[in-house]
Structure formats: structure tokens, C-alpha cells
Design a protein around this nucleic acid. Structure first.
Lengths: 199, 199
DNA sequence: GTCTATATTGCGATAGAC
DNA sequence: GTCTATCGCAATATAGAC
């Protein structure tokens, strides 16, 4: 399973190493060695280290094309919000490297940020903001909160849970078994807040 | 103002360059050149590139010692939450590089993560979680949400707003003039949620 | 303290054999 | 398609003059 053609192996190993150490933290020497292929294969298939990185980044962000499914999940804005949370968690579970590229590019952008990363993030935030504004117009959501601000708050909540894992794994379990409970709590906070209802 | 002794200039320029390009994205050649001092000064003062990075990182995270002030701002858990939001925003405004180190270390940890970064993050989350649990025991907050989960949601909301700047500056203004309004909206979302009150 | 000059290592890329 | 060998360059670190 882990041993197919050279191109695939380079993508596979490149994904892991670039995610863990960043573009500048990886050498094509170490990478090709880890992949068990010759160093010259990187230039042959990808035109160089940056070419491989670019290909990996594009593959990682390809899943953002599915974002539209979230919106089609019914016109109910509350359902869309829960769908977004589920979709995001599922994404991070099925691909543990995505968030590394995501935050690494936001923090120390490479030349590929503007073409690959920024549009993907923008699209998601825009969809969420639209849905929230729409809910506000229908009277479902409060009108004193901007859609984009709320969208960023929602995205921040969910993504930060995974981003902070390395620093907070001694404070709380990040196991997938608790995902359903996490979803329930984050939906609750975002829609109804932390305050107790009138007793 | 920008031209004092060599040690200070290396710290100053190191802070900016490491923040923008990461530890591996900066060479001591370019760094010393930008600082206008000789390359050997880095070894002389800091024992090498990693030594300088470590000193910069420590200086950046020193402000986390002030976190306890937030808690003393009165026993009211709601006031503590607003204080945290204000404190975090003030921190990012007065030091625009901090978040870069923060997320860069969470994403691609250096050898200094466990000694400098992780404890600082843990301390903040723990204080927030304690305050929230306390509020829940007093009946102010809902009891069906874990303190740590809520703390991570709060920290994620605020930090992500700044983290996402580079991707979302065309969607919303990140100007400091809007900070008060931002604080109001994030307090509102976190405590009362997005749902409209009964009309 | 600060510099120049240099030693040494590792980098990315590619030419050329197979 | 895959490899080995190598070129040219940039990296970190330091020795030694001032």
C-alpha cells in the first residue's frame, strides 16, 4: 500500500515531511531518501522542491471544493452551521496534515498562498457569512452581529481545537470518540452561548 | 530609535524576520546584514542562530505572565471573559509578531516549544477553563459544556480573527478602530450565542 | 566588541550512463 | 524512468586581527 510508483511515494512522503517541518525545514535529499527514490526524481516529476510542495499543497486543498455540499444540506441556517462543523472535523480527522499547511501558509506564506490557500479560506468564510446574514434577515439570528465576524468566530472555534492539540493534549482528550460531544457543545456555544437559560 | 547596540539590533531584526519567515526561512547572513552588524555577532551574543531564536521567542512570550491580571479583574466570570478578549486583542495590537510565533510553533514546533510555548498556552486555557467551570457551578453558565472546550472555543475565536487576516482582509476590515465593536460581538456570541432572543 | 577571512558542511539542480 | 556523480553555491560557525 505504501509502495507504489515513485511519483506517488514522493507525494506521500512530501505531504508528511512538509507538514511536519515546513517548506524550508525539508531538504530534497532527506525527502527522496525517506521515499526510497533517487534525489533526481523530484526534479524529473515536479521540476524541483517548490514544484513538489506546490503539488502537495494543491492536493491538500482540493477537498475545499466540497464546501458547497454544506450549503445544499437544506435551507435551514442552523443545519448549515452544524454541517460546517461536521465537515471541518471530518476533514481534519481524515487528513491530519491539512491544518498544518493551512496555518503554516497563513503564518509564513509561500509563493503559493495567494493562488491556493487564500481563495479556499475566503470561499468558506464567505459561504458561512452569507448563510448567517441570511438567517439574520429571516429573524432567526440576531441582527447586531456581522456575518463575517460570526463566520470567523465559528471557523476559529473549530480549527483552533485541532491547532492547539500539541499544547493542550494534557488538558483534554482530542480523541475522535469525543467528536460527537464536541460538535454538540460547539453548536450550543455558537448558537445559544455559554449563559444558562433562565431557571 | 532603531539604532542602538548590536545585541538589541539583532533581537529587533531577528524578531521581525523569524516571525515573517520562520526559523528555517532565515539565514544568519541575511539577518546580520539586515541588522547592519557582522555575522559573527550572532554567535558572540547568542551562541548561534537557534540561540537568537530562543531569546526572541522567550521575549515574545514574556507577556503571558500578565495573564493573572485578567482573573483579578473581579470575581465576575463574565468580566473575566471580556478581560481576556481585551487582553488578547491588546497583545496582538501592541505586538503584531506574537501570533506568528504562536501558530508557527504550534504547527512546526522547534526544540523550544515545550519549554516556552506550551506552558504559556496551557496556563491561559487552564485559567479560562477554571473561571468557566466556576461560573457553571454558581449557576451562571450552562452545565452541559466542559470548561476546557469552552476555553478553547473562546481562545480560538479571538486568535483566529488575527490569524486569518492575510486571507480575509478583503472580506472585512481588521483595523484597530473596529476593535471595540469586535469585542462587543465576540462577547455576545460567546455568552449569548447567535440566536435571536424571543421577539 | 567588532570585524574579515575561512573552514566545513549541506543545499538544490542536473548531466549523463543505463 | 531511475540511478550515480558532480557542479556551484549558500549555509553555520569560528579563528584571529584589530
Amino acid at each position: 500500500m505504501t509502495t507504489t510508483d515513485s511519483r506517488s511515494r514522493l507525494m506521500e512522503v512530501g505531504t508528511q515531511l512538509f507538514a511536519e517541518r515546513g517548506l524550508n525545514g525539508v531538504s530534497i535529499r532527506g525527502l527522496s531518501q525517506a521515499a526510497g527514490v533517487s534525489i533526481s526524481m523530484i526534479s524529473y516529476y515536479f521540476g524541483g522542491k517548490e514544484g513538489l510542495y506546490s503539488a502537495v499543497l494543491q492536493a491538500q486543498f482540493a477537498c475545499f471544493d466540497q464546501i458547497d455540499e454544506i450549503r445544499g444540506r437544506g435551507a435551514d441556517p442552523l443545519a448549515v452551521i452544524e454541517s460546517y462543523i461536521r465537515w471541518t472535523i471530518r476533514r481534519h480527522r481524515s487528513n491530519p496534515y491539512l491544518l498544518r499547511f493551512y496555518t503554516s501558509e497563513l503564518t509564513n506564506p509561500t509563493p503559493f498562498f495567494s493562488a491556493i490557500v487564500s481563495p479556499a479560506i475566503c470561499k468558506v468564510i464567505r459561504i458561512l457569512a452569507d448563510v448567517i446574514e441570511e438567517g439574520a434577515e429571516r429573524g432567526l439570528f440576531r441582527r447586531d452581529i456581522q456575518g463575517v465576524n460570526a463566520a470567523l468566530a465559528l471557523a476559529g472555534m473549530v480549527n483552533y481545537f485541532f491547532l492547539s492539540t500539541m499544547a493542550t493534549e494534557n488538558l483534554i482528550s482530542h480523541s475522535p470518540e469525543r467528536d460527537e460531544e464536541l460538535i454538540r457543545q460547539y453548536v450550543a456555544i455558537f448558537t445559544s452561548g455559554l449563559l444558562a437559560g433562565k431557571p
